[in-house]
Amino acid sequence: MDDKLRERLRTAAEAHRPDRERMLARVERGMAEGPSARTPRGPLPWLRVVGATAAVCGVLAVGAYAVTSAGVGQTRGGQVAGSPVPSVSAPAVPGREPELRTEDGPLWADGAVDPHSNAYWAQSNVTLRTTQPLSSLTVELRIARTGGVHTTGSWRSLPEQDFTASAKEKGGFLVYRWTLKPGRTVPVGTHMFAGQYNHAEGHRGAEGDYFTANAARTTGQQVSVGDNFTSGH
């Protein structure tokens, strides 16, 4: 029911004022006249009056009900308080790769599949170049676990005793991680980190692989780089 119809029903119900005295007089007059021989067969006059009265009351009752129903759910301010709208949760956002850039301040990086990889085995290389010493560094290489991917080792060009290294399966990736130990420093220069793995026979696309490197200069400023691998063997 729209707002205009509700308002018209409410106005009609409020404006109606039944004339009780006139209606009772008609009922009493019909009873006093009594039945007549010339009166056609059918309901007695006073019954017709009572019936008409009942019909009028019925119409008023329906009108009052309609107005009342139209007002259901309204607040004192006259606004309709509709049924609460169920909240809809935002769809879950799938996992995404971090925002990657190949250069940040003194740090530059590149990722590539080693050209000596073959139809059964591959090596992914992460090359870092820094123009300033680094007081902290964490390099993470993620190899998508496509058919048959399994680690066969890793290495880095910087001293082995300066880093903590690990390789584990996590979230659909084979994850290699190298973390510079406290108190150690990465010198200015170009350095390499490599992860090695077997894979199913044939060409392996590396489009799902990527790496990140997070570091801090000796002055304390944080820098980070990363890149995707776009080829494979």
Rank of each mutant, 00 (worst) to 15 (best):
V56C: 03
P106N: 12
R217A: 13
Y176E: 01
Q79N: 09
V27I: 11
G208M: 00
A12C: 02
G220F: 03
A194W: 07
A206S: 10
V139C: 12
S166I: 03
T131R: 14
S231E: 11
E97H: 07
V27W: 06
Q196R: 15
T230W: 12
M31D: 01
Y65K: 07
D2R: 11
T230C: 03
D19E: 05
E140R: 15
L180W: 07
S136M: 05
R129E: 09
T218P: 04
W108H: 15
D209T: 02
G95F: 04
W178G: 01
R38Y: 06
V62G: 08
V67E: 15
S69P: 02
K170C: 01
F173I: 01
L134C: 02
V56E: 14
R22L: 13
E99P: 04
V67H: 13
V67M: 12
T164E: 13
P94R: 06
G153D: 11
A206C: 08
P91V: 00
A206K: 00
S166H: 00
T102P: 02
P86Y: 02
S117A: 15
E99F: 12
S69Q: 14
P98L: 11
G58F: 03
G105Q: 10
N198M: 07
N214F: 01
G220A: 05
L158W: 03
L9M: 14
A109P: 00
A215Q: 06
D110E: 13
P98R: 04
P133M: 10
P84S: 02
R8S: 10
T146S: 13
T75A: 15
A112K: 11
G205Y: 05
E14R: 15
T53A: 14
G232K: 02
T68R: 10
L137K: 03
W46I: 06
V27Q: 11
G77C: 02
E103D: 12
V88R: 13
H233F: 07
R142P: 00
T39C: 02
V126M: 12
L5P: 00
R204C: 01
G172M: 03
T152I: 04
F173Q: 00
S124I: 06
A15N: 08
Q123E: 14
A15L: 04
E33A: 14
V59P: 00
Y120Q: 11
G147E: 08
Y210R: 03
Y120K: 11
V59D: 04
E99Q: 14
